[in-house]
């Protein structure tokens, strides 16, 4: 094994409330750009997501980004959509990620190309996210590709998937979570939470199904920077639901103070989420606004983060 297993997994196993963040999409071939953005999140986030052509817009590949993020001393979570690659490309990138020391993967179908900057493109959708979770799990646990052919050695992954408790059919969402756990998912990052009671209901149902002991649920919290930005998110980003009360609250303050109000909203949501049984951490994101993310992590009292070496030390305890 080229480098240590997932530290994110270790922190969750030890019962830490984890914090993850997201590398804003990179459009530069200069590695310094990625290194600097990753470094800005170091010490605030336990792991950082590297998105895969987010919103169906082309950006730096998640494999390259994840490699650079780890070079910057931050643990990456490589996102992988089934939209842009077929089963060969996906398995090749999973193995490639493992070879580069990437230990966390997050698997999803991805926003449709119609939402992005190449709406005329042909999507792959050769396999679905549930199937890719199972394939990644088989690569890790059996050391074989989907074809059955053996790899020289099995890659080590902490396997994540996504769920959106805020999209219909609501009753099916916990059942679908169960199916993803059955397929092999070990952690889940959710769609953005603005509607905390809906997430709470989802978590209770997941608890009833016995899933909370089997999978670490990490809800996502967005930091809205302005009322306009929040409205854009509600209308244009597939799957995001923002209650009108939240929009009204942002609109009620002058534009110059909306960013501060956005931070307050996000901190409140983080604090509410911490009281929900089975919530194992938070994923804090903003659209191209790292400072907002850092401030929310600070003001929600999530610092200091556990030290890098903490995993090994605690694991040695009886």
């Amino acid at each position: 094994m080229r480098s240590a297993p997932s530290r994110l997994a270790a922190l969750l196993r030890q019962g830490h409330f984890v914090v993850t963040a997201e590398l804003s999409a990179i459009d530069s071939p200069d590695p310094a750009v990625t290194l600097n953005r990753a470094a800005a999140l170091r010490g605030h986030a336990d792991a950082v997501n590297c998105t895969d052509n987010t919103g169906a817009h082309v950006h730096l590949s998640p494999l390259a980004a994840a490699h650079l993020v780890s070079e910057a001393g931050v643990e990456p979570i490589m996102q992988l959509t089934t939209r842009d690659r077929n089963r060969l490309g996906l398995q090749a990138d999973l193995l490639g990620a493992a070879a580069l020391g990437v230990r966390n993967v997050l698997i999803m179908s991805g926003d449709d190309v119609s939402a992005g900057d190449h709406p005329e493109a042909r999507s792959s959708y050769d396999i679905d996210s549930m199937q890719l979770v199972r394939i990644a799990r088989t690569m890790r646990d059996q050391g074989t590709y989907l074809s059955g052919r053996r790899m020289e050695s099995a890659p080590s992954f902490f396997i994540g998937a996504v769920e959106n408790p805020f999209a219909p059919p609501y009753d099916f969402r916990p059942a679908r979570l169960a199916k993803k756990v059955e397929a092999g998912a070990e952690f889940i990052q959710t769609q953005l939470v603005f509607d905390v009671p809906r997430l709470d209901a989802f978590m209770r149902r997941a608890g009833d199904l016995g899933l909370l002991e089997r999978v670490a649920i990490i809800p996502s919290v967005a930091v809205p920077r302005s009322a306009r930005g929040a409205r854009f998110m509600k209308e244009k980003v597939p799957g995001v639901q923002i209650p009108d009360a939240v929009l009204r609250r942002l609109e009620a303050v002058p534009v110059a103070r909306q960013a501060a109000e956005g931070i307050r909203i996000a901190v409140e949501i983080v604090n509410q989420l911490r009281d929900i049984a089975g919530v194992r951490g938070v994923h804090v994101i903003a659209i191209r606004w790292d400072e907002g993310v850092l401030t929310v992590i600070e003001e929600a009292g999530l610092l200091p983060r556990p030290l890098a070496g903490a995993g090994a030390a605690v694991a040695a305890l009886p």
Partner: peptide, 21 residues
């Protein structure tokens, strides 16, 4: 399904139950 999903809905389903695409 425009994403050929065979194991359940994606996260893009609209609040009124309509398709993302």
């Amino acid at each position: 399904c425009p994403k050929n999903l065979r194991n359940g809905p994606c996260g893009g389903v609209r609040a009124d139950g309509a398709c993302e695409v």
